[in-house]
Amino acid sequence: MITYPFLQKGTTIGVTAPSSGVSADLHGIVKQAVERLEAKGYKVEVGETVWTDDKTRSAPAIKRAEEFTAMMQNNEIGAIVPPWGGELLIEMLEPLDFDSLKNKWVLGYSDTSALLLAITLKTGIATAHGTNLVDLRGEYSDTVTAMWETVLETKPGESVLQVSSEKYQLDWQHENPAPCVFHLTEPTVWKSVSPGKVDMSGRLLGGCIDIIRHLVGTPYGNIPRFRESHIPGEPIIWYFENCNMKTTDLRRSLVQMKLAGWFEGCSGILFGRSPANESVDNYTIEDVYQDLHHELAVPIVYDIDCGHMPPQLTFINGAYAEVVFEDGKGTVRQTFK
Results as ranks from 00 to 15, higher is better:
Ala118Met: 07
Ala118Thr: 10
Thr120Gly: 05
Thr120His: 12
Thr120Glu: 15
Lys122Ser: 09
Ala126Met: 04
Thr127Asn: 07
Gly130Leu: 00
Gly130Ala: 15
Gly130Asp: 12
Thr131Asn: 11
Thr131Gly: 13
Thr131Arg: 07
Asn132Asp: 02
Val134Thr: 04
Val134Glu: 03
Asp135Val: 10
Arg137Lys: 12
Arg137Thr: 05
Arg137Pro: 03
Gly138Trp: 07
Ser141Leu: 15
Ser141Gln: 09
Asp142Gly: 15
Asp142Ala: 08
Thr143Leu: 11
Thr143Lys: 07
Val144Arg: 03
Thr145Met: 13
Thr145Asp: 05
Thr145Cys: 04
Thr145Ala: 12
Ala146Asp: 06
Ala146Gly: 05
Ala146Leu: 07
Trp148Leu: 10
Glu149Val: 09
Thr150Lys: 13
Val151Ile: 13
Leu152Pro: 02
Leu152Met: 14
Thr154Pro: 06
Thr154Phe: 09
Lys155Ala: 10
Pro156Asn: 15
Glu158Asp: 13
Glu158Lys: 14
Leu161Lys: 09
Ser164Ile: 11
Tyr168Leu: 15
Gln169Arg: 15
Asp171Lys: 15
Asp171Pro: 04
Asp171His: 14
Asp171Trp: 15
Asn176Ile: 15
Ala178His: 15
Cys180Ile: 09
Cys180Val: 11
Leu184Phe: 08
Thr185His: 11
Thr185Met: 09
Glu186Ile: 12
Glu186Gln: 08
Pro187Gln: 11
Pro187Val: 10
Pro187Leu: 10
Thr188Gln: 03
Thr188Asn: 02
Val189Gln: 03
Val189Arg: 03
Lys191Pro: 00
Lys191Cys: 03
Lys191Tyr: 02
Ser192Lys: 00
Val193Pro: 00
Ser194Met: 02
Pro195Asn: 03
Pro195Leu: 02
Gly196Asp: 00
Lys197Tyr: 01
Lys197Asp: 01
Val198Ile: 09
Asp199Leu: 07
Asp199Asn: 08
Asp199Ala: 02
Ser201Gln: 14
Gly202Gln: 14
Arg203Ile: 13
Arg203His: 12
Leu204Cys: 11
Leu205Glu: 09
Leu205Phe: 09
Leu205Ser: 03
Gly206Pro: 00
Gly207Arg: 06
Cys208Phe: 10
Arg213Lys: 14
His214Gly: 00
Val216Gln: 04
Val216Lys: 04
Gly217His: 08
Thr218Leu: 02
Tyr220Pro: 01
Tyr220Glu: 02
Tyr220Lys: 11
Gly221Ser: 04
Asn222Glu: 10
Ile223His: 07
Ile223Thr: 09
Pro224Lys: 01
Arg225Ser: 12
Phe226Gln: 04
Arg227Gln: 14
Arg227Cys: 13
Glu228Gly: 03
Glu228Phe: 00
Glu228Pro: 02
Ile231Gly: 03
Ile231Ser: 04
Pro232Gly: 13
Glu234His: 08
Pro235Gly: 07
Ile236Asp: 03
Ile236Glu: 05
Ile237Gly: 01
Tyr239Cys: 02
Glu241Thr: 12
Glu241Leu: 10
Cys243Leu: 02
Cys243Gly: 10
Lys246Gln: 08
Lys246Arg: 05
Thr247Lys: 00
Thr247Pro: 05
